[in-house]
Computed example of a mutant assay.
Amino acid sequence: MEFKRHVLAEEKAKPTAEELQKNLISLIDLSLVLKQAHWNVVGKNFRAVHLQLDEILVTTRQGTDDVAERMVMLGFSPDGRSETVAKKTPLSSYATGFVGIDNTIQAIADALATSIGELRKSIETLDDLDLISQDILIAISSELEKHLWMVQAQEE
């Protein structure tokens, strides 16, 4: 399918979609890491961390949807397939089995920082390509940065 009316010039649309795709992959994997951590966190303050992980997940999933829908608006098909995410994610693999609170907090803080780093690189790149896509990534980054602050404030 091809849209007849484009909201962005062709020479800017493709590189914009490429930046969005990179972040889509990062955010999808971040949501998977968050759910894995949510299911497997153990230790003191379990309940608080368990619930906090789901709060971050809501933000992440909304961001994923916003990025994918922006790609579609630009006329590009988002690729969120598991094989694509597994091959191209910038995030480190999450531990298997039960994970203690301290290690969970460290791993989630690292995953958030990686995803935020990807967002920030694309925010800079999009400055010359598409300010609306840039604004979407800024909004996502802002929320994730707040979550990062709250997660890493728990590190010992």
Rank of each mutant, 00 (worst) to 15 (best):
L27R: 01
F3A: 08
M150E: 09
I116H: 08
F3C: 07
D54A: 09
T125F: 09
D79Y: 08
L34K: 11
A37D: 00
S82T: 10
R81T: 15
V85R: 05
E2C: 07
V41Y: 04
I105M: 06
R61T: 12
D127F: 11
D135C: 05
W39P: 00
G75P: 00
V33E: 00
S133N: 06
G97I: 02
A17G: 08
S141P: 03
E2Y: 11
S26P: 03
E145P: 05
Q134E: 15
T104C: 12
S133G: 10
A37E: 04
V49M: 14
L131H: 09
I108D: 01
L74N: 06
L137E: 08
Q62S: 10
I123G: 00
H38A: 04
E156W: 06
S77G: 05
D66G: 03
L24A: 11
G63V: 06
L112Q: 11
G100L: 08
L57N: 09
A13P: 04
L57I: 06
V33K: 07
Q52H: 12
A68D: 00
V151H: 03
S82Q: 08
A153V: 10
T89K: 04
A17N: 04
I123E: 14
F46H: 14
D110A: 13
I101C: 03
M150T: 08
Q36L: 05
D128P: 00
S122L: 05
L51I: 14
R5Y: 10
T114M: 11
N103M: 10
F46P: 07
Q21Y: 08
V85Y: 09
Q106S: 13
L53V: 06
A68I: 03
D79L: 06
E156G: 14
T104A: 05
V151E: 02
Q154V: 11
L32I: 12
L27N: 06
D135S: 15
E2D: 12
A68C: 10
L137C: 03
I136W: 02
I138K: 15
E18T: 14
Q154R: 15
T16L: 10
I140Q: 03
E19M: 12
L24Y: 14
